[in-house]
């Protein structure tokens, strides 16, 4: 009897939902799989107004998390997906992405050339969105001296022990561990990888969490429960809004240079709207607004011109070439190496 009532109820809900859905099909929907704090709300509002559409963002915590989501969904339910450059190849291989007709995007012309082909397989399937570095954000008031090296992070002092968060991403963790040991972040050398594994395993007891910090005022970094965290540059500034003692450093050994692209899901339901969106966000003015509100480096040259000097000269947002000298892009690695890294990664974070 209970079962019967339950199913009736469920059916009822479904009906209402579908009705509400259908009710809203008059309005077009755009579903974006994205990092949080990665898209200025004002931009979204403007877009929604302009095109009488509804924009929905689904957030992921890390690249790997996004991989999981896509493995599950195969891209269905999303229109646009925010993909980091190094993951592009495998995403395409999985068939989760479809080509983007760049000629239909007017404002594409403003994108800096260097990003368009920075990674394997990105061209023709993506629109560069933001770029930045991977470094360390820390509370300088809670440390004796400022952090300057990855090795300090991976061999935490007593002040740091138990107060570290590391991004739960294979490439980031292993890459930076390698760099702290003086190796390339893209090393495929077993010995080097094993050394990195050892380093990470001995750091493991002192890591509070493998994940990503909150960026709002409730952040553990704001509270002081966490003293240092591996973080993407823009996010450091974001959370830094809530506490003036939060500092971002790109360590001496160098960090990782990331580039994020917007890609079109092969299961995109609103292809046209998605195209329009891609164009919209690259409107220089809007691109500038987006950058300012997210503290991120825009690849849009025209938008850059519209940014304040202060913004443009912020080394966290727009690090100069010298700073970037030692940092690396993540390259596509050989399968066996990836396998090795994966097993190391799983070992470390599980």
């Amino acid at each position: 009897m209970k079962q019967f009532i339950r199913s009736i109820f469920l059916l009822g809900c479904l009906f209402v939902y579908s009705v509400s859905l259908s009710a809203d099909t008059s309005k077009k929907h755009l579903v974006i799989l994205n990092w949080s704090e990665f898209l200025a709300p004002s931009l979204v509002d403007a877009f929604e107004k302009k095109y009488e559409a509804k924009v929905k963002e689904v957030y992921f915590e890390s690249d790997d998390a996004r991989d999981q989501i896509l493995l599950q969904t195969k891209g269905k339910g999303f229109d646009l997906i925010l993909v980091n450059g190094s993951s592009f190849r495998s995403y395409r291989k999985k068939g989760w992405l479809q080509p983007i007709p760049l000629e239909e995007i007017e404002n594409f012309k403003y994108i800096e050339k260097r990003w368009i082909n920075a990674f394997d397989s990105v061209q023709g399937y993506s629109v560069p969105y933001f770029w930045g570095t991977l470094g360390i954000a820390y509370r300088k008031d809670l440390l004796v001296k400022p952090i300057e090296r990855w090795s300090e992070f991976f061999n935490p002092s007593d002040e740091l022990k138990g107060k570290i968060i590391i991004v739960k991403s294979s490439a980031d963790i292993i890459g930076m561990a390698l760099k702290s040991l003086g190796y390339s972040a893209n090393s495929e050398n077993h010995k080097e990888l094993d050394q990195a594994k050892a380093l990470l395993l001995q750091q493991k007891p002192h890591v509070a969490k493998y994940g990503y910090i909150n960026l709002d005022e409730n952040s553990a970094l704001v509270k002081g429960d966490i003293v240092a965290t591996m973080v993407y540059g823009g996010d450091a500034l974001n959370v830094g809004e809530h506490h003036d003692q939060i500092v971002y450093v790109l360590p001496e050994e160098g960090g990782n240079i990331w580039v994020d692209y917007f890609a079109m899901s092969s299961e995109a339901a609103n292809y046209d709207l998605a195209i329009k969106f891609l164009d919209f966000i690259n409107d220089p003015e809007w691109a500038a607004v987006n950058a300012e509100e997210t503290y991120l480096a825009t690849p849009n040259t025209e938008a850059k011109k519209l940014l304040s000097d202060e913004f443009v000269s912020n080394p966290v947002i727009f690090p100069d070439n010298k700073t970037l000298e030692k940092s690396e892009f993540f390259k596509t690695l050989s399968p066996r190496a990836m396998r090795h890294r994966t097993s190391i990664f799983t070992r470390v974070v599980e």
Binding site: D67, S87, R89, K94, S170, P335, M338, R339, T342, T346
Partner: peptide, 9 residues
Amino acid sequence: ETRYGLLLS
């Protein structure tokens, strides 16, 4: 590549 890159973890 895909196997190790995406699914292995």
